[in-house]
Design a protein around this nucleic acid. Structure first.
Length: 826
RNA sequence: GCCGGGGUGGCGGAACGGUAGACGCAGCGGACUCAAAAUCCGCCGUGGGCGACCAUGUGGGGGUUCGAGUCCCCCCCCCGGCACCA
């Protein structure tokens, strides 16, 4: 029982693959559409999140092909990364073998889903043909001075045994991959100067109306622009300059101390100036042992130390003490702050603890602050006081006015600061793209010549028990002549963050196997930008920022025109079961293979698209899957039972040719379905309601029971519409039924149905009659009555006359084709 | 703390300011069957009434409106992001 989805699905999958049905080539004469889903990491097998991601993308792709667009829909594998390496350590399977086996297996799974990819373009980031160009791109960054090495306190994950970029430290200082608390280590590492693009990355968010507001806000927060001023204090004894950054230059008259980060370079110098050198060293050492979580937790204990040195306020000439404070971060602003306890809560808490004076320089509009009695800082806008010539000025005016004044007199400079930091891309791991540089004792850092790329990853490597990258110990691989002088040099042992590999793959798809360039400019200019990108929201401040950065860099190099990679972004929700994300530890994982085996790919796809709108979390329900399967069986039976009449051909009858009410309703149902399904898919991306409309159409067709030639023709039109509209959702069963009903052409490439305007017009409408806004009656009336006619006819209804019982309505509101509201005094 | 997004039947979810609960799931009743499965038909927010009906109902409280799930104000709860960023 039930239709034989197993053989049907395989049959069509083989046909699509064999014929290259969904292969797309650049064609300037055709309108293009680039539909892309985030490519998977080859972890072993697809999970439900993948199934959802690829069901959405595939449905859209098939829909757009039917609408006549030239659709690029590629797939590949984000194939470098730690799990392969861990598998190599654990099961002694080489990382490349583990990865390639998984890629082949998952490719097979994607085909069994019925995905309409252009398989010719499959890429794998661990393939030397690909990472050669990843390395080439790195060299372009290096050439432009946007890749550099620096020694800095960096994020280190003990468990992963490598450093991490700031974006990869999440959930209160934990590793994005393994959730281990991250610690700070001082190391020399490679960085990409993403901060050079901070302003553009921020500004261009305004040009992305097709992105969810949520993601744009997250990126704005992450980039964290703040406008203010940089000003220099002078250390009294040595005359040394200490720079600070403030967004509240209007509080300059309220400065009562200066505080430095323990890592501030001047701290070391202070030891030779201050009689309290020992104390300073001890304090700095103690701060260094605090974890970054302790240091940066909100409300964490603020600790400080008077250094015995003083600084001069450049504006007032006042002398204030210099302290070292654990709450000052070295990697934001200048690593030193001007302390204004009266108007900054952190400074306030710190000042109270250490007995530092509080000086009020802004009064609230409706009261007077007294420094002694304050129990917290006043951070709001108010009126300046104790601020010389600026007294009486409201904060909003005072900030720009005082900065202008300060700049003119040389006290400060305008400055914009970003929270965004340069991207740390070194990884002390094996399974990644080697950073293509050589260290030479004479020449220093020497880039590997572009012609010598790729720097191949050795395949036979030994992993050590105690961890660490095997590349660092592979003397044979490490040793190489300096490309510049030829003397023995040493390769860079670190590999690149895998987020580099995924920052440009959507360009590579455009000319996937071109071995002369990273990507062909003409092809990229035809296909890019991606028109629809689909993936999880967890990449809001990771991949989605990095990819934007790379795209802008390519544009600046003249490699492509696009300045933004993704025009429209759809962030799909998680797949959950029993109220929680599917995970092995919770034991609530549903295996896509099982679902496809038991119900078929069409059922799986249909359920996924029907169960929830794409942005919502999707609650997995076995019963729901059965419901979807039941629907497909009903579609199958409907066609099977009416096969002889459906196999006939004939023109469809226009609305004008139908007189009978039943037939006109059927015709209307068909065309209203086309209209709303089209809108749901292309407009708000409400795939669940689109499916609901198709279910309604099936219900109507099932109840129709055609008799006679006219009815049979109408029925045929209904079934063909159902199959055509359902095709992007469930491509196999619909294609099979299409061919069973005698169609020679492929449904996949046959045009999407068009709604006939005349068939959308209603003959009659149900008008709601309200009294004082409460529903009282429903009446069937001809469509298109004017307000006056409508009101007249409703007021003449016997039931309404009875209800009014002689009372004269105070007012009557009539909305044509909708309702009449009769307002009466109670 | 700040910034987002949400709270609608037993469940997933629908509703241009205009019939709340489309569609599906679960449940209940019936038909078919020796029986079960499958399938088909019907019912299905809550309270009241034999009944046509009446009242009530979209987290809570106010407001705007002829009319509010939808708009405005206040509050509660859940989810997500950021968080000592100067």
């Amino acid at each position: 029982m039930g239709y034989d989805f197993r053989s049907i699905e395989l049959k069509w999958q083989e046909k699509w693959e064999g014929e290259g049905t969904f292969n797309a080539d650049a064609d300037l004469g055709r309108e293009k559409f680039y539909c892309l889903e985030m490519f998977p990491y080859p972890s072993g097998a697809l999970h439900m999140g993948h199934l959802r991601n690829y069901s959405i993308g595939d449905m859209l792709t098939r829909f757009l092909w039917k609408r006549g667009l030239n659709v690029l829909h590629p797939i590949g594998f984000d194939a470098f990364g730690m799990p392969a390496e861990n598998a190599a350590i654990k099961s002694k399977t080489p990382a490349h073998k583990w990865t390639w086996d998984n890629i082949e297996y998952m490719t097979e799974q994607l085909k069994r889903m019925g995905c309409s990819y252009d398989w010719r373009r499959r890429i794998e980031t661990c393939n030397p043909d690909y990472y050669r160009w990843t390395q080439w791109i790195f060299l372009q960054f290096l050439k432009k001075g946007l890749a550099y090495r620096k020694n800095a306190p960096v994020n280190w994950c003990e468990s992963c045994g490598t450093v991490l970029a700031n974006e990869q430290v999440i959930n209160d200082g934990r590793c994005w991959r393994c959730d281990t608390p991250v610690v700070k280590r001082s190391l020399e590492q490679w960085f990409l100067r993403i901060t050079d693009y901070a302003q553009e990355l921020l500004d261009d968010l305004d040009n992305l109306p097709g992105w969810p507001e949520r993601v744009k806000i997250m990126q704005r927060n992450w980039i964290g622009r703040s406008e203010g001023a940089r000003l220099s204090f002078t250390e009294k004894r040595s005359g040394a300059v200490i720079e600070t950054f403030t967004t509240r230059f209007d509080t300059i008259f309220g400065v009562t101390f200066l505080a430095l980060s323990p890592e501030h370079p001047f701290v070391e110098k202070m030891c030779s100036l201050s009689p309290r050198a020992d104390e300073i060293r001890a304090f700095v050492k103690r701060c260094a042992t605090q974890s970054s979580i302790e240091r940066t937790a909100v409300g964490g204990e603020k600790e400080g130390l008077f250094t015995g040195l003083d600084a001069v306020n450049p504006v007032t000439g006042e002398v204030v003490p210099i302290l070292i404070a654990n709450y000052i971060l070295m990697d934001y602003g200048t690593g030193a702050i001007m302390g204004v306890p009266a108007h900054d809560q952190r400074d306030f808490e710190f000042a109270r603890k250490y007995g530092i004076p509080v000086k009020v320089v802004i009064q609230p509009v409706d009261g007077a602050l007294n420094a002694e009695e304050m129990d917290r800082a006043f951070e709001d806008n108010g009126i300046a006081c104790n601020s010389g010539e600026f007294d009486g000025m409201p904060t909003a005016e005072a900030i720009p006015a005082m900065i202008e004044w300060g700049v003119k007199r040389g006290y400060c400079e305008r400055e914009v600061n970003f929270r965004l930091r340069d991207w740390l891309i070194s990884r002390q791991r094996y399974w990644g793209a080697p950073i293509p540089v050589v260290y030479c004792d004479d020449c220093g850092i020497v880039p590997v010549p572009e012609d010598d790329l790729p720097v191949l990853l050795p395949e036979n490597v030994k992993f050590k028990e105690e961890g660490g990258s095997p590349l660092a110990d592979d003397q044979e691989w490490l040793t190489t002549p300096c490309p510049r002088c030829g003397k023995p040099g040493r390769r860079e042992a670190d590999t690149m963050d895998t987020f580099i590999c995924s920052s440009w793959y959507f360009f590579r798809y455009c000319s996937a196997h071109d071995d002369t360039v990273a990507f062909n400019a003409d092809e990229a200019n035809y296909w890019m930008p991606v028109d629809q990108y689909i993936g999880g929201i967890e990449h809001a401040c990771l991949h989605l920022i990095y990819a934007r950065f790379f795209t802008k860099f390519f544009a600046d190099l003249g490699l492509s025109r696009a300045r933004e990679p993704f025009t429209n972004l759809l962030t799909q929700g998680m797949v959950i079961k029993d109220g929680a994300k599917m995970s092995k530890s919770l034991g609530n994982v549903v295996d896509p293979n099982e679902i496809i085996k038991v119900y078929g790919a069409d059922t799986a796809r249909l359920f996924i698209l029907f169960a929830a709108p794409p942005a919502n979390d999707l609650d997995w329900s076995e019963h729901g899957v059965e419901g979807a399967h039941r629907f497909l069986n009903r579609v199958w039976r409907l066609v099977e039972e009416n096969l002889p009449l459906l196999a006939q051909r004939g023109p469809s009858i226009p609305m004008e040719g139908l007189a009978d009410r039943r037939l006109r309703d059927m015709k209307r149902k068909i065309h209203v379905t086309i209209q709303s399904v089209t809108q749901d898919i292309s407009g708000e991306k409400q795939f669940n309601t689109a499916v609901a409309r198709l279910m309604e159409l099936l219900n109507a067709l099932q109840a129709f029971h055609p008799e006679g030639e006219t009815e049979r023709s109408l029925f045929r039109e209904g079934v063909e519409t159902l199959l055509a509209c359902l095709n992007p959702f469930c491509p196999h069963i619909t294609e099979e039924l299409w061919s069973l009903t005698g169609h020679a052409d492929a449904l996949a490439m046959s045009p999407w149905p068009e709604a006939e305007p005349a068939a959308l017009e209603a003959d009659s409408v149900t008008v709601v009659v309200q009294m004082n806004g409460k529903l009282r009656e429903r009446v069937e009336l001809p469509a298109g009555l004017s307000k006056e006619e409508l009101q007249e006819r409703v007021l003449a209804l016997p039931s309404i006359i009875r209800r009014l019982d002689g009372t004269r309505p105070e007012r009557v509101i009539a909305v044509p084709d909708k309702l009449v509201n009769i307002v009466v005094r109670d």
